[in-house]
């Protein structure tokens, strides 16, 4: 127990993501105002708030889809503010989407292999001419992708088109694809949306498994409070683009201000 704690405190000394004074303005609307966030390595962090609070906007800034008006984002000591999405992924942030965005006309296996794209170095010419490196690296990609699919129990469906998977499996495939890019930080945008309680419980196990076995830091947006209180160690609550509360999950969820924001006066 004490050893565990010592490990935890050691982990806490190293910060994975540091967001300072992040703002974004669309015309006259301040969608996110003065947002601060610190996530330690290996932490499972929740970002919650009512609809329209700006949670996905924060994700979009973290992944480079939107350029913040001001503020800074530091990932593992590297300033990634305002970089392009592809570059930010290479720097170590992978994400899933609120409305699932798979490569629908491609097989399940190919979806994950696209995620492995930047880890293999053979060039277009080598691919066309089928030089030895093509075969070697394609084989490695197949193996790695199958391994990842096994984790999510999708290896039985790897030849199917992604769009033919049932909803819950599509969510899992998106996580598998994100993990294939070998990120340091994984962002999950409402992973439990549209799932029944059983699927949600299964998803919680999967997320914990990913954190433990892939040594991952995870930031997730979620409306399902059971999931949030079940797996998140810390949460930040956003309301109208501003931080309402932050801290230990149990404390924050019992905060009267948070309850008011969710349920109204």
């Amino acid at each position: 127990m004490s050893e565990n704690k010592a490990l935890n405190t050691e982990k806490e000394t190293s910060v994975m993501l540091e967001v300072k004074n992040l703002c974004i303005q669309f015309g006259g609307l301040k969608a996110v105002d003065n947002f601060n966030l610190t996530i330690n390595k290996g932490q499972l962090y929740g970002l919650i708030g009512p609809n329209g609070a700006g949670k996905t906007t924060v994700f979009n800034m973290l992944t480079g889809v939107y350029k913040p008006t001001s503020g800074s984002i530091i990932l593992d000591g590297l300033n990634i503010t305002g970089k392009h999405p592809a570059q930010i992924n290479k720097d170590g942030i992978a994400r899933t989407f609120q409305n699932i965005r798979l490569f629908k006309e491609m097989s399940v296996l190919d979806n994950v292999k696209v995620g492995l794209h930047n880890q293999k170095k053979y060039s277009t010419i080598e691919g066309i001419l089928r030089l030895p490196r093509y075969f070697k690296e394609e084989k490695e990609m197949d193996e790695r992708a199958t391994e990842l699919l096994k984790v999510f129990e999708l290896d039985g469906e790897k030849e199917q088109l992604a769009s033919n998977l049932p909803y819950g499996k599509q969510r899992k495939l998106e996580i598998a694809r994100a993990l294939a890019t070998n990120p340091k930080l994984l962002l999950l945008d409402e992973p439990a949306a549209g799932m029944n309680p059983n699927e949600t419980a299964e998803l919680m196990n999967t997320i914990r498994f990913v954190r433990d076995n892939f040594d991952m830091t995870i930031l997730l947006i979620e409306h399902d409070m059971k999931l949030v209180s079940g797996i998140c160690e810390k949460v930040t609550v956003l309301n109208f683009g501003q931080e309402l509360a932050k801290g230990e999950t149990a404390e924050v969820l019992n905060d009267p201000r948070v309850i008011t924001a969710y349920l109204g006066e």
Binding site: T63, G64, V65, H84, P85, A86, N89, K90, A94, R95, F97, R101, L102, F103, K104, E105, M106, D110, V114, G115, H117, N118, R177, A178, A180, T181
Partner: peptide, 16 residues
């Protein structure tokens, strides 16, 4: 094909 199927997702997995 990833770009064809989903532009934003392709970027998010590091495709230039």
């Amino acid at each position: 094909m990833a770009i064809r199927d989903n532009y934003i997702a392709a970027q998010s997995v590091g495709i230039n």
